[in-house]
Design a binder for these strands. Structure first.
Lengths: 208, 208
DNA sequence: GATGAAACAGGTCAATCATCCTGTTACCCA
DNA sequence: TGGGTAACAGGATGATTGACCTGTTTCATC
C-alpha cells in the first residue's frame, strides 16, 4: 500500500489538535463533537490523533488545562493585574467582551462555564480541573479586592464573597446572552456591577 | 409472535416519558442521554416512545416547555409573588435552594441554565424556547422590583438591569456550585445580593 | 357492530461513534 | 552506522445511537 510522507512535528500536531478541539468544544460542546471532525479540522490522521490522545477524555482534559485556563487568564486575571483597581479592571473587561460579542455573529458563551456545566457530572477529573480554574479566577479577584482595601480605596467589602458575585454575575450573564443571542444581559450586568462597586469604593479622583 | 397486552393511557405514558427525560437531561445532559435509557426509565416500548415523540428533538422541546418552565415558575416566579417584597423573596429562594443542595448528594445545577448552554447553539427552536423562559423569569423579577418602587419600598433602582443581575448571579453561582460540588458559591451570592438590595431598599421596619 | 384512527408492542436498520490495529517513517543515542 | 523508539499513516471494528417499520390492540364515532 502507498502511504504518504509523514510530517514529524509532535508539538505542532498536538497544538493543532488541541486548537481544533477547543474551537469545536466551545462552539458545539464536548459530546456533540466527534473525533473524526477534530481530525479533519486539524488535518491529522487517525494514527496521529490516537498517538497524542489515546482517548477523547485525554483530549478534553488537555483542552481544559491548556486552552480554557489560558483564556481565563488572558481575559480576566491578566487585565485584573494590569489595572489600578478592581472596579476599573472589571468594567474594562466587560466592555471588551461586549464589544467582541457584538462584532461576532454568534454568541458562544464563556468556555469555562460551558464546559463546566456539560462535564462536571460526567467526569470527575474534568470537574476538578474546571473547578481549579474557577478557583484561580476567584483567587485573582479576591486578591485584587483585598489589595484595594489595604490601599484604602474601599472599605466594608468582603473580598471573598464579592469575588464570587462578580464571577457568578459574569458567567450567568454570558449564559443569558447565549440563550438570547444578544449582548444585552452582559450590558445590564456591567451597569449593575459598576454601580455596586462604585458604592463600595471611595471616589477615584483625589478629593480636597 | 406473542405480544404483550398494551396499556392504553396516552397522557400517563407521555408524562412518564417526559418525566424520565427531564430527570436524565438534568442529571447528565441532553446529548449524553440515549433514547433507550429513557425508554427503560419510563418503562415504555420503542413504539410508544416513537408515537408520542417521533424524534429526540421533539422530546427535548417538550421537556423544556413543560418541565423546565414549570420548575422556574415553581422555584422563582411563584415565591416572588407570594412574598411581600423582592429582597425577602429572593433571600428565601436562595435559602431554600441552598438547603436543598446541601441535603442532596450531588449538585446538579439549574435546569434552565444547563440546557440553555448545551442546546442554544445546537437547535434554534430550543434556543427560543429556553430564551422565552429566561424572559418570563426576568419579567417576574422586573415587575416585582417595579411594584416595590411604586410602593415606595425602594428608590434609585433600575428594575430591568437589576432583574438581569439577580438571574445572572443565581445562574452563575449555580454553575460554580456544580463545578465545585458545594453550595458555598450560592451562599456567597446570597450574602452579597442581600447586602446590595438592603442598600437600595428602605428599612422594612417602620421608622419613627 | 362496523370502521377508521389513535395508541402501543417489539424488533430492525443504517449511520455514526470512539477506539484500536498493523505498517511505515523519521529521529535519537550509542 | 545501526538499532530502538517515538511519531505518524491509513484504515478496520464493534458498540451504540436515533430513527423507523410492520403488526396488533384499544377507543371513539356513527
Amino acid at each position: 500500500m502507498k502511504t504518504n510522507r509523514r510530517t514529524n512535528d509532535p508539538d505542532g500536531v498536538r497544538r493543532r489538535i488541541v486548537d481544533a478541539a477547543y474551537d469545536a468544544f466551545v462552539r458545539q460542546g464536548y459530546l456533540a463533537t466527534g473525533m473524526l471532525e477534530i481530525r479533519e479540522k486539524a488535518s491529522v490522521s487517525g494514527g496521529a490523533l490516537a498517538h497524542h490522545f489515546p482517548a477523547k477524555r485525554d483530549l478534553g482534559l488537555a483542552v481544559i488545562r491548556d486552552r480554557v485556563a489560558q483564556v481565563v487568564t488572558a481575559t480576566w486575571i491578566a487585565p485584573l493585574q494590569a489595572h489600578a483597581d478592581a472596579p476599573t479592571a472589571i468594567d474594562s473587561i466587560f466592555a471588551a467582551i461586549i464589544g467582541e460579542l457584538t462584532s461576532r455573529r454568534a454568541v458562544a458563551g464563556c468556555p469555562l462555564n460551558d464546559m463546566a456545566l456539560e462535564l462536571s457530572l460526567h467526569d470527575a477529573e474534568m470537574r476538578v480541573a474546571l473547578s481549579d480554574i474557577f478557583a484561580s479566577w476567584h483567587d485573582a479577584l479576591r486578591a485584587k479586592f483585598y489589595a484595594d482595601v489595604l490601599a484604602d480605596r474601599a472599605r466594608d467589602l468582603h473580598p471573598d464573597s464579592l469575588a464570587t458575585l462578580i464571577i457568578a454575575a459574569y458567567s450567568g450573564a454570558m449564559a443569558m446572552a447565549k440563550a438570547r443571542q444578544h449582548a444585552i444581559p452582559l450590558a445590564d450586568a456591567r451597569t449593575e456591577l459598576a454601580a455596586l462597586l462604585a458604592a463600595k469604593y471611595h471616589r477615584i479622583t483625589p478629593a480636597g
